[in-house]
Design a protein around this nucleic acid. Structure first.
Lengths: 127, 127
DNA sequence: CTCCGTGTACCACAATTCTAGCACACTAGT
DNA sequence: ACTAGTGTGCTAGAATTGTGGTACACGGAG
């Protein structure tokens, strides 16, 4: 469950960090009232500039997931679990929809897509 | 089968154009020896700057899918159908893999993912 | 009070993507 | 020849994303 950053990915680093905490909080690990690592701590842990962390945390705050307490840290709100679960469904749903759209544009039938998915699932092992 | 550009998408416009022709050629519509629209024609048709088309066509040429003939146009090569079919599988495979990775990071089980996929498939209609 | 750790606010710079415009080289048709 | 249409090359700017650095404001521990 570690944060595995992909700097070459199309999704910006700040958004990868944002999603990481959304998924973590949706899973209940940092619960309401608890705090997530400070900007500088997080930056040092994943070797990213503090400003990038600030950007990610700012998005989480605007979404009502965390609240900034100066001199203290970023605290998980009461609504955070609900919001994060909703966002988790939304994010994964978007990915699935994108896959369907791409397959349709590629002229690939639904049956072929299912076959491709099974093939890749086998490649990636049981888990 | 029209080119539906998404300027706000994370995938750059030049790459959307590139994929469009890969999928088209993989389907066999512009066949070997035929030509794809000129840079200026394509730019005017989809309301994009010619330089963006040049970028997309340049990638297709580097991949050996088309060959530039000055004063004539961009011609589909003999190897293009094979290359485009390979790329089509590769592109869709990457999308599927990304979905699995995202679901795993979200702590979503494979069963839950399958359930989500079916749900969205129903939402998107039969087709 | 002082010190340290916290969030916040700037500024500057680089890389990528896209837009914008211009000039040049080549080919076909007239 | 001339013209129109093709690909090619160049410079420049805007917007986004990320890095790098500095300074300031707030709160708790000593």
């Amino acid at each position: 469950m570690a944060l595995n950053l992909s700097p070459d990915s199309r999704v910006p680093i700040f958004e990868q960090i944002e999603r990481y905490w959304i998924y973590r909080i949706a899973a209940g690990d940092p619960a309401t009232g608890e705090r997530i690592p400070s900007v500088r701590d997080m930056a040092q842990r994943i070797l990213v500039h503090p400003n990038t962390i600030v950007h990610a945390y700012g998005e989480l705050e605007r979404a009502g997931i965390i609240v900034a307490r100066r001199g203290i840290g970023m605290e998980v709100t009461a609504d955070a679990p609900r919001i994060c679960k909703e966002k988790r469904e939304s994010l994964l749903g978007d990915r699935v929809r994108e896959l369907f759209v791409e397959a349709e544009q590629a002229g690939m039938s639904r049956a072929d897509l299912v076959r491709l998915v099974r093939e890749i699932m086998n490649q990636m092992g049981a888990e």
